[in-house]
Amino acid sequence: MNKLILSVLCAVALCAAVVPCFADTVNGVLAEERVVNLPNDSGKWYISVVGNANDARYNEIVGWFSTNPNLKKLKDQVHFCQVTTDTAIYKERYAGNVKGLPTVRMQKADGRVVYEAAGKNIPMTAAGLNGALANGVYSAEGIRPVLPWRREMERRCPGPGPCPTPQPQPQPQPDPEPQPIDDNGPPNIDEPAVESAVQWAWLPALCVLGFLGGLAGAYGRQLYEKLHPPVK
């Protein structure tokens, strides 16, 4: 009899523990799960490429953000906005504040412009645009130096290579691939590879110069002591 009572009590205790879980499920676990997984990306920066959808230059620049690895990486870290001149968004929000077309504009989450270039002021190559955007990030974040990073980049890509060909898009343009969902804030550009101020090729010459300098110093001191004997 005692065993039976004990079993019933155990079963009741078990149900008491489980039932609230089901109640939660009924009250919208799916919704709760989605709330937890919402991207906390309000601090993300924005990169906008504004231009005419039929303009080859605009399409070329947009294409760079898919073909150039650095720009592709940057694109994945920001809100990337393609704005074409035939949209209401352009006419109402951006037509009055771009200096020309196409325009590339990088903004902080609060709208402050970190980098902007329009028309002929946009760098000629994808690597150039990446460098310009990186400069914008460095300036805004107070990161230095910039030049060695650019030198390093140019060392890696010394000559003129094949330009990425613009990808003509059929009309109407499909919506772009959605960006990854994440909690990123400002873009994280790789730390610049800081080059030594002294080139290694100059090292032997510097050693010789140092040696000669030391010799001259020692000789000069002896000469001084000879000319000015200590007064005793």
Partner: peptide, 11 residues
Amino acid sequence: PIYTPAAPLPQ
């Protein structure tokens, strides 16, 4: 929907 909101007005 969860996509890319329009960029803020430049400041």
